[in-house]
Amino acid sequence: MDQFDGKDIMEIMQEDLLRALKKPRKERRWAMAIDLKKCIGCHACTTGCMSENLTPPEIHYRPVKEEEIGEYPNTGMRFLPRPCFHCDSPTCTPVCPVTATYKRDDGLVVIDYKKCIGCRYCIVACPYGARSADSGHYFTGDFHDKTYEVENSGEYGGNFKRKSHWHSPIGNARKCHFCIHRVEKGELTRCTTTCLGNATFFGDINDPKALITKLISKPNVFRYKEELGTKPMVYYIT
């Protein structure tokens, strides 16, 4: 399905987004839905996110897990992309000793790159492995100052250049932030716009008219490890 009620879903989501941005922030609730039927396991979202957020080696905000189901010849596959779930009841924020990571009033779970002391407690505490430690690796070794690796990713709308290990986000915890730097400029998240399966949906679930709200109100929706009580804001459609 590329269309919903005869309208292109990208356009619907775009309109939903602009509408949400007109509301005061605390009335918004960003959420994502990923249609597992449409997800074809192309991993475009993974590298799209890497290039959007200039993440260093071994830090992937949105990996895609590949799970085999059943036994040959009755085999099935599930591709499960995993951004940060921006849990409504996150296990990562309560443990942060300095409240560097917290849930904003729009539900977004953010990391204050200037406060984080790099204790990594939140990384240990997230049950989904959604957080990473940026210990300061570069892909391009000695050549890094000549490449994009020390330029500003614009994450959280800030100005962070990974120039040395004294410069955040090196030394910090990092994770998917729902591309808030794009979203608040009126652009959908990068994983949504690059998804080859058109399987990733984004929007404000406080808006009853939003596409995402309609999608997640169906019975064919689940959240990952829901039993943990974390109440993820990422819904999987089956």
Partner: peptide
């Protein structure tokens, strides 16, 4: 990761 920010234990306790 950032020892120099330990003062946030006081400024921004959780």
């Amino acid at each position: 990761g950032h020892l120099e920010r330990m003062y946030y234990f006081l400024l921004s306790p959780n």
